[in-house]
């Protein structure tokens, strides 16, 4: 499929990268295999400037108002929010579990940090996800190289700062390879305090 190239318009502030919004929703009874995941994920739009981002974002439902088992993803253009994508296959993600009611605020803050290039880890950031679940909501940030400890530590420390997380917040990291093996996004993570 050919898509129109998205570029900043005159007077707009360009972003370092273009980003694409995705949405996915799963019926809990259905198994989360790769095929059904790919079928359930939908590309919503791509932005190239700060102004285009706000225009798009302001019309989206806030994640805290979503119901059921659904996710918003914001990824660099060209990277699919899937473990198997070329940019993700050696990567992993930091996970922050949020009690109900916090997702919308944290989602906005993590997006602004990513769009503003606050993480200072070169090309390493792939995208961010907010996952709405029944008991809790989950925020994740995906990076390219799971075994690069300098990068993953810097992402973790930046997250603490930009999200203003209390010092005792539990941070969990999971490689996409491990997610593929146990076919689960958020189980069996490595916990860091």
């Amino acid at each position: 499929i050919r898509r129109k190239m998205v570029t900043p318009a005159a007077g707009e502030h360009p972003l370092q990268y273009n980003y694409t919004f995705w949405y996915s929703r799963r019926t809990p009874s259905r198994p989360a295999n790769t095929q059904s995941y790919e079928q359930n994920i939908r590309q919503m739009g791509t932005v190239a400037s700060v102004e285009q981002f706000w225009k798009f974002y302001s019309h989206l439902v806030r994640p805290g108002d979503l119901t059921g088992h659904s996710d918003f993803h914001l990824f660099k253009e060209g990277i699919k929010p899937m473990w198997e994508d070329e940019a993700n296959k050696n990567g992993g993600k930091w996970i922050i579990r949020l009690r109900k009611g916090l997702a919308s605020r944290f989602w906005e803050n993590i997006i602004l940090a990513m769009l503003g290039e606050q993480f200072m880890v070169g090309e390493e950031i792939c995208g961010v996800v907010v996952s709405i679940r029944f008991q809790e909501d989950i925020l994740s940030i995906w990076n390219k190289t799971a075994n690069d400890q300098v990068t993953t530590s810097r992402i973790r420390d930046t997250l603490r700062r930009v999200l203003n997380l209390p010092p005792n917040t539990i941070m969990e990291y999971k490689t996409h390879n491990d997610s593929l093996k146990d076919n689960s996004s958020f189980r069996n993570t490595k916990i860091t305090l």
């Binding site: 972003l15 370092q16 700060v50 102004e51 706000w54 769009l115």
Partner: peptide, 21 residues
Amino acid sequence: GTRIIYDRKFLLDCRSSPLAR
């Protein structure tokens, strides 16, 4: 190359620009 860095306050200020509506 140079990196385009924006802080949170700048990004939030852009939200009220007519171009962002």
